[in-house]
Simulated assay, not measured.
Amino acid sequence: MSKLLHVLPIPPGSSVVSVLPELTRALDGSSPPLLPVPDGDAKETNRLTRALRPGEPIDDVADDIALVMATSGTTGVPKGALLSPRALRASGEATHRRLGGPGSWLLALPAHHIAGMQVLLRSLLAGKTPVVVDVTAGFDPGDLPAAVEAMSGPRRYTSLVPTQLVKVLEHPDATAALAALDAVLLGGAATPPPLLRRALDTGIRVVRTYGMSETCGGCVYDGIPLDVATVRIDDDSRVLLGGEIVASGYRGLPEHSAFAEPGWFRTDDAGSLAGGRLTIHGRLDEAISTGGLTVVPEVVEAVLAEHPAVRECAVLGVPDDRLGERVVAVLVAAPGLVPTVEDLRLHVGSVLDVTAAPREIRVVDAIPLRGPGKVDRIALREAWSRP
């Protein structure tokens, strides 16, 4: 008999620890399936509940579900990844094995998203209560030193997204605090190479992670799958992820093509494997077709990020009568520097085909994000189309 899906309100700030007993029951399979939603954010809660229908039975095909984790929703409509207790435990335990053993965790991400939720679950598996940085009103790196000081040993970890790391590196005390940790998992979006080098140069032990709600979060660390995960590349360069960490499917979508092959999840990412190490090249559904050629935004972004005048950037294609789409860039400038489109085109053209170089740029104060750290390209395109 199917169980009903229940809402699990996730309180803000340090009050989030109040959900740990319910999550303990979820991990041991004794709770009903739970849909985490942000307590106090009525708009986001309504969006998630409309799409994922708490109060209705969970799918019969996946009756052992602990959590229904909302995807980041590139189309604006989230799907619900059905995660079993076994998959969640496998993910957390494999993470600890890869990092060198269980430890204390610092939560600095919204816990209704998979990356933040995994901090709570890994804390439970380690027998620890997480230390919490309140990000309700935004991430303040100035909160990190005291939070790190409050963490117990012998091993200490946290999980961040690249935009948070950018802020940390502008704050010397926060940088020193992160460098004291045994590992800083960094995921949710691609990490620009200059940002990674800066962090490593300060002594921060960054571990880049790749994964999604459908794989219980990160399952590939620094290009190498966890010991409970498997990676393969399809004929069209698509990345497929398999293993114990794969979701049982999507809520209400039993025939979804992403789970057509039992035990595997078909991502929307293009990648390659060399020597057992995975490299992600970008999303297949975000490729730009310009003048009959294909441009992958993430590849261009990685080159732009190397320019000294670029602090953050996002590349997208916008309609063009002649080219079909033209490549444009939205960027946050480095302090005191004013990039020009001519400089950036020369910079990109020195590394990639000039077709990939942005034909226009717009400088903004901040790049819009969806979920924890992912570029909101829908919002960027809508903003670009406005005069």
Rank of each mutant, 00 (worst) to 15 (best):
M1Y: 10
I10Y: 01
P11F: 07
V19E: 08
A26F: 06
D28E: 15
D39R: 15
G40H: 04
R50N: 10
A51H: 02
P54C: 12
G55H: 12
E56H: 14
I58Q: 12
A66D: 02
G80Q: 08
H96K: 07
R98W: 13
G100L: 09
P102D: 06
G103W: 09
S104P: 12
L109I: 03
Q118T: 07
L120M: 04
P130I: 01
D140A: 10
A146E: 14
S152L: 13
T158I: 03
S159L: 05
S159I: 02
P172C: 10
A177E: 12
G187E: 05
T191A: 04
L195V: 04
L196G: 00
L200W: 03
T202V: 04
I204Q: 02
I204V: 15
Y210N: 11
G218S: 12
C219E: 05
T230R: 15
R232T: 11
G243C: 09
G243E: 04
E244M: 10
I245T: 14
G249H: 11
Y250W: 13
L253P: 02
P254C: 09
S257N: 09
A258G: 01
F259T: 02
A260P: 00
E261C: 00
G263Q: 07
D268C: 10
D268I: 11
D269T: 03
G271A: 06
I280H: 08
I280T: 12
S289P: 00
G291N: 04
G291P: 03
V318F: 06
R322F: 10
R322N: 02
L323C: 04
V327Y: 10
V341S: 00
D343F: 01
H347M: 05
P358S: 02
A366I: 01
V375M: 02
E382F: 09
A383N: 11
R386S: 13
